[in-house]
Every structure is written in structure tokens, then in C-alpha cells.
Design a binder for these strands. Sequence first.
DNA 1: TTGCAAATTTTGTGATCACAAATTACCACT
DNA 2: AGTGGTAATTTGTGATCACAAAATTTGCAA
Lengths: 227, 227
Amino acid sequence: MAVSPSRLDTPEPKPRNTARQQVDEAIRTALLTGRFIPGKAVTLRGLALELGVSPMPVREVIQRLAAENALEIRQNGRVQVPQMTPQRFDEILKARLLLEPELADMALPLLTKADANALEEIDSKIDASLGTGDAESYMRYNRDFHFRIYRSSRSEILLPLADSLWLQFAPYMRTVYGRVGTVNLVDQHKEAVRAIRNHDATALRLAISKDIEDGMGILGRAGLLDQ
Amino acid sequence: MAVSPSRLDTPEPKPRNTARQQVDEAIRTALLTGRFIPGKAVTLRGLALELGVSPMPVREVIQRLAAENALEIRQNGRVQVPQMTPQRFDEILKARLLLEPELADMALPLLTKADANALEEIDSKIDASLGTGDAESYMRYNRDFHFRIYRSSRSEILLPLADSLWLQFAPYMRTVYGRVGTVNLVDQHKEAVRAIRNHDATALRLAISKDIEDGMGILGRAGLLDQ
DNA sequence: TTGCAAATTTTGTGATCACAAATTACCACT
DNA sequence: AGTGGTAATTTGTGATCACAAAATTTGCAA
């Protein structure tokens, strides 16, 4: 008998490094850290030039992000970062409150002491960013904090859904921070870490829920009155 | 004064008819009605030939669907319809139970008597399809039934998330129906219509939840033992 | 018949080009 | 200076090509 693969699926030899993946990561990071302003036009050739590739991989990535509602393709074909609306904002908040506590709940049994320490480390960087008013760093570390938890869940379904949500509200939140600053920001990260250390599912769900509301609740809607 | 657009956004003149949209719709419908078998390889040139277009628009659509986890791009670049796994199945079920009752709840105030009648019409077609054992028609009409409700919510966030979920489980469910048939299928559609007519939010949520469990609960996991 | 290696084909990736539609720039005219 | 129309530019779309990697087929030898 042969020692052939025990599974008839996923041999998955070696990860290839395509230009598309680089472009994808670059644009996603830019969206998540708020380097794209809502309403701002995005052009294929512009991004391609900026990233040093041909328009080809950019086209594919834009389609990807448009499918996740992170970019908007108008009917004239032009691409832009979607504008936030009160309805969209409320729905994103609702969806986050449905999905993210669930993800945290799934992750909890898999979270180790090392994870808790790493989360504490990230949280201290968040505090540092808030102190210096560096909104871009804050957004990156805040994202890291949440998805360090969620990713531990090994979720294949809920995790991509949450990913899509973050891509949708991040650019807008960046504009809010630019307007009202970051000094008033509060979060429930220390409570979350404590809940993880105590293996307390109820407390973790509550911390995540409250954290989402802290981030988007009062502060968030404030910016929607004008624009 | 001018009669110019009252909003400073979205003039959106006329919808363009691109090859990409046609390809997108064709492949989505094929996935939702189970014409693609999980694990089946999908090739750019093959689809392009089949749909009478160049590989170009197919590439973009595949990227879109891959971003929604409706197609899987392996690390060697090959594309296939994702295989179902017990974990994925359970998570999809969980996600549906989180999102779809909420969508129905949002839709309820906007649903009219005409909607209820249309839903009843669709449900009769479902019964007809079940009678003749036409799984493909069943899947199309069942999809129509659910999204006729959900779409009424005018949701911009939760609706695309639910869309992604349906694309992920539809191909697998088709294989289940092919194995065990459709005669044993039960649903809660009549209860849902009744709840809509009575403007009973609690009853509608319950009907949707039970309907999801009827469709995926016992029957669904049965097929996961082998493959 | 079986195992293995070379050759052929298939496939995704990235780049370039042509084209049409939309946007922007420009300039004459009132 | 404001306005209207035309020209120039920009932009997304679709097609084709070259290339490399992977999968498949073929052919030869044990």
C-alpha cells in the first residue's frame, strides 16, 4: 500500500506569492487604518502606479473588496470608498453585536495564558497610541486586539463576516477620530483580558459587547449629523 | 436656482450592462441552485467558453465569489467549489440563526399584504417542486421565499452577509437532496406567512428559526458522515 | 502489468492594448 | 465674469498574449 495523502483534499504544497495578495493586503490595511477617506474616488491606474504593479491585480482586488462592501462600484464604473449613512451605521453596530461576542465565545476555550499576555501587550500599545493621539496606530492595534481573540476561534464562517464589517466601518471611524480626537475613547479591553484569564464566558461576551458600544455608540453617531 | 440633484452623492445615471454582471449572475444562480458540486474544479477558460465571454470578466467574478467564500482559491491557484465540513456546517447554521431572524424582524414592518400573497405563491411552487422531486426548482424557490422577506428589510449590511452564507451552503445542500431526496423536507413557510399577516414579530422570528433548523438540522448533518 | 520519468497540455497570473463612456479642461461668445 | 459647447483626458471594460507552474498524458523499461 502507498503512503499517499490520507485526505483526498487539500494537499496545498507551498504558498505562492502573487502580486494580487500584496495589493490585497496593502489596500485592506489602508482601509482598516483609515488611510482611505469615505467618498474618496479610487482609480485602478492610480492604485496600480502607487503600488508599483500593473492595473491587472488591482482590478481583481477591487472586485474582491467590492464584494465585501468595503469598496463601492458605482453604476458608471467608478470606484469609491463608501459613504457612511445613519442606517448603515446602525446596522453595522447591530451586526457586530450579533457576531463578535459569539466569536469571542468560540475563541474562549482556545485562548491560552500566552494569548492573554499578548492581548495585554497590544492593549498597552493602544493606550500609548491614545496618549499620543495617533489615530492610525490606534486603529491598527485595536483591530489586532479584537482579531487576536476572534482568530483563535478557528472560525471559517463568522470570522470573514466580521472582517467584512470592520472593513466597512473603519474608514468612517477614522474620520470621526480626526474630528473629535481620540482622547475621549474608552474601551473594555482590560475587562476582556480578565474574563479570558478567568475563563468566564459571560463576562467576555459582556466585555466585547460593551467595547463595541463604547467604540461606536455615542461617539460614532455624532459624526453622522453633517457630511 | 437650478433644479440640480438635491443630494451631493449618487447621481447614478443609468445602469450599465457589463459582461461581468451577466457572468456574476450566472455563476451565482448556478451555485444557489446546486449546479456546482462541492469539490468540483472550476476553470477560468472553461467558464468563459461556457458563458461565451473572454476569461477576463470571469476572473473578476471568481475573485468576487472567492471573497465571499463561495468559491475557494487553493494555494496553487486552482479554483473549486468548497467542500463542506462538519465545523463549517455548524457554523453556517449558527450564523444563519443569528442573522436571518433579525433580517425578518427588520422586514416585518415593511411587508405588505401583496408580499404575503406573493410569498404564498412562491410557497405553492415550492410544494410543487417537492412533489415532483425537482431539487433545483426547490432550491431556487426556497431562496426566493427567504430573500423576498429579507430584501424587504432594505438592509445594506446584514443582507449581503446572509447572501454570502447561502452561497456557501447551497452547493452542499444540493448534494444532500440528491442523496436522500426532497420528499422528507418540511418547512415553516406557512407559519411565516401567517406571522407576517398578523404582524407578529415573535412568531416570525420563531418561524424563520425553525425553518432554518428544519432545512439544515437533521437532514443536513446526515450527509457529512462520509465524503 | 507496473512504476517512473519525460513530454505535452492545461491553468492561473500579469501585462498591454483598443475602445467607449464619462469626466474634466478649455475657449469662444454674450 | 458667467455660460455653453467642444476638445482632450481620464477611467473602467474586455480581449489577447506571454509566461511559469501544475496537472495530465504518454512512453519506455523493469
